Simulated assay, not measured.
Amino acid sequence: MPSFPILFFMVIFSLVSLAAVLQNGFMVTFLGREWLRCGTLPAGDMMVACLVTSRLCLHGISILNNLVNFFGFCYRTRYLDIFWDFVNTLTFWLTAWLSVFYCLKISTFAHPVFFWLKWRISRSVPRLLLSALFFGVLSATSTAVGNAVTIQTITSESVHGNCTLSHSIITFHRWYFFWHSLMMWLTPLLLFLGSIILLMFSLYRHMEQMRGCMLGPCDSSTQAHTVALRSLSFFFIFYVLHVLTQFISRVQLITIWNPWYWVKETVLYAGIFLHSMVLLLSSPKLRKVLKTWFSDLCCL
């Protein structure tokens, strides 16, 4: 029988995951319908649509993976781990590219290279989405190779009865997936951080120019900078926490019967849910549709 802390955080995790599935499902439904109706989407909405779709899959896989682990079907989680790694890496890269997109579209630097990137970014969105998909496939392939080597080593140990291999298996699994995570997740984290720093510097320069021109502090450019920074900075905290926690869990395995496992799961997926909520509330179209839906529900 699970202890009370485990049950408590399991319930919180389940509620957060259910809310996230409903939230991302709403965004996927609306943006997907717009995509089918118009045949295309603005570049920013296209990236958001792909991101919330990947997050919907990520929440669904996390629920399924935890249920399978909890009920003792551990041998089946190897395939779920590969799919989870694919979607998790895909989500990281989509989030990083979305931050780069916001940075280039909103920042007001006068350098020719920046102008060229600003002009090219909307046309490059399909390529950015394909690159995120490529890194997701690469990550899943790396995970599959690591799992295959681990299983082969365990099989060899059981055949030869060599007990010294147990420590080697643990060490290999720990450090292989540590470097795997470092290579797959650190680069999008640095892109994310760079986008935030550039946006902050752009906002600072813009505010200085406005003071020199004796303009008010509430122009559209300032508001765009503020909204983007609020969204990116908020999620960056959870992004860093997510990456660090995954690194730690790669090195120090935490079982599903440890309360800290469910604390970690709750915090991580709550952070992703809250960032999706910020994206939802930052979009006038999505806000309007959500308000209409709530109004219709209240009238029933």
Results as ranks from 00 to 15, higher is better:
S276A: 11
K105L: 06
Y269I: 12
V145F: 13
V159N: 09
T245I: 08
S282L: 00
T164G: 02
G39E: 12
H275M: 08
S221D: 12
S220N: 08
Q223L: 10
T29W: 13
L56D: 03
M210F: 01
H160K: 09
A144I: 05
T53V: 14
D296K: 11
N147G: 03
H160W: 07
H275T: 13
L64C: 02
I237D: 01
R230I: 02
F236T: 09
R33I: 15
L280M: 04
I106K: 12
Y102I: 05
V125W: 03
V145M: 10
S295Y: 06
V227E: 03
W257N: 15
T40E: 15
T164S: 08
Y75K: 08
N88M: 07
V11Q: 13
R211S: 08
T108W: 04
V137P: 00
V289L: 12
T292S: 08
P42K: 11
L244R: 04
S195M: 09
F247T: 03
F238H: 06
N162I: 11
F73Q: 07
W84E: 11
G32A: 13
W260T: 13
D85F: 11
N24P: 01
F247Y: 14
H225G: 12
L203D: 10
G146R: 15
W260S: 15
V125Q: 03
G39S: 12
V243P: 00
F273E: 03
V137I: 15
L130K: 08
C103T: 10
I272G: 02
V159P: 01
M10D: 01
W257P: 00
